[in-house]
């Protein structure tokens, strides 16, 4: 009986913890939106510079995404490792 409660509480804690860890993805989403929006505006104003802008946009997205991926990795570790 007590073992069951402990097991259930462990699962509960894991699920809530993983969900809370994924809150960090908000920042990555906002960052990628800002980067892509700025890049599209820049490309609309100066279509000739599309190539350079696109390269820098993907770079910026990769950096913004990295923080979101850290949160994701922590959530995955909580779910599947501990």
């Amino acid at each position: 009986m007590e073992g069951d409660i402990v097991a259930a509480a462990t699962v509960l804690g894991k699920m809530i913890g993983a969900g809370l860890a994924m809150v960090g993805v908000i920042g990555g989403g906002v960052g990628i939106g800002v980067v892509a929006g700025g890049a599209v505006q820049a490309m609309a104003r100066n279509p000739d510079a599309s190539g350079t802008i696109q390269t820098n946009m993907i770079l910026g997205i990769a950096f913004a995404e990295a923080t979101a991926i850290y949160a994701l990795v922590i959530a995955l570790m909580i779910l599947f490792v501990f």
Partner: peptide, 16 residues
């Protein structure tokens, strides 16, 4: 850190 976690996180999450 960011190189390795970026690739790992994306592809592992994708396979899950």
């Amino acid at each position: 850190l960011s190189f390795s976690f970026r690739l790992f996180g994306n592809i592992f999450a994708g396979s899950v």
